[in-house]
Nucleic acid binder design. Structure first.
Length: 271
DNA sequence: AGAGGTACCTGGCAGC
DNA sequence: TGCTGCCAGGTACCTC
């Protein structure tokens, strides 16, 4: 699933094709996603023009003036621009029909994604109301992390994957950022110094920026707005590299489960 | 308040 | 080859 870099790659890919365009219709072939697609969604969309494509965490936000179409890609979702109405595959659940025959097609084999409507601004929607800061903005800093972590005993990896702490950091980039920062993923969040949180914040920002530059990470499903995969997979240093050599020190990369998620780390470099 | 487990889905893969 | 069990990029919701 798409983490922040994949969602941002999608946003950048679709924005030029949908911004300013009028919505002519909505085809919902499968209503049962993470939540049911609202039965009246099409009525909110048809005839409206898309003003902007924004992002908050892993949520894509299509602003229509009268409200916001909120799209989440879940674990396996992707959005593509179609210039002609290609016949839908079994997991092509939704087409947003735009003027000039353009379509925005939503594909999601696992159906953990979501298409929701928010009247007014997206920030008012309950799903977005409790989200933490954006990792690439200044509100995300070591002081914020260090203060929030006080007395918390959960693993720092689970801590930075908590969307109330910071948005957009999923399993791949949590593993990669902790490796770059030299912090053991199982270390209690409340037992990390401010100085080490400085390193972690820098690592998170850097790894996310680099991944965005590479068009995200494609493990299986992810494609950008043009149907192309992301290439950051070649830059992963620990994720899915259990039993291989640590690229920094040569020790064997270890694999374990933390908070029910696969975790990869070098026990020599990360403390 | 925080931590941990469960649930929602499909598909690919390893092992038998 | 086919079956079974496990695993996968997320996250809301429940219980303790």
């Amino acid at each position: 699933m798409p983490e922040l870099p994949e969602v941002e790659t999608t946003r950048r890919g679709i924005a030029p094709h949908v911004c300013g365009r009028r919505i002519d219709g909505l085809i919902v072939r499968q209503r049962r996603l993470r939540w049911p697609v609202p039965a009246d969604l099409g009525q909110h969309l048809e005839g409206r023009r898309i003003d902007a494509v924004g992002r908050r965490g892993k949520y894509l936000l299509l602003s229509l003036g009268t409200g916001t179409l909120i799209i989440h890609l879940g674990m396996s979702g992707s959005l593509r621009i179609l210039r002609r109405p290609d016949p839908p595959g079994p997991h092509d659940h939704i087409d947003l029909l735009l003027e000039d025959e353009t379509r925005l097609r939503f594909t999601d084999p696992r159906r953990f994604g979501a298409w929701l409507w928010s009247a007014g601004t997206a920030a008012q929607h309950p799903l977005l109301a409790t989200l933490g800061p954006e990792p690439l903005e200044t509100g995300f800093n070591a002081g914020h992390l260090h203060a929030l972590a006080r007395r918390r005993r959960s693993a720092v990896k689970s801590f930075i994957m908590n969307s109330r702490v910071v948005v957009g950091v999923g399993n791949i980039y949590a593993n990669e950022a902790l490796f770059r920062a030299g912090i053991h993923p199982a270390r209690a969040a409340g037992r990390i110094s401010l100085a080490r949180y400085e390193r972690l914040v820098e690592a998170i920002k850097t790894v996310l920026r680099e991944a965005i530059d590479q068009g995200g990470t494609t493990l299986r499903d992810f494609v950008d707005g043009e149907g192309r995969p992301g290439y950051f997979r070649h830059n992963l240093q620990v994720y899915q590299r259990g039993a291989q050599d640590c690229p920094r020190c040569g020790a064997v990369i270890r694999e374990s489960r933390i908070g029910q998620r696969s975790s990869y780390f070098c026990a020599r470099c990360q403390r």
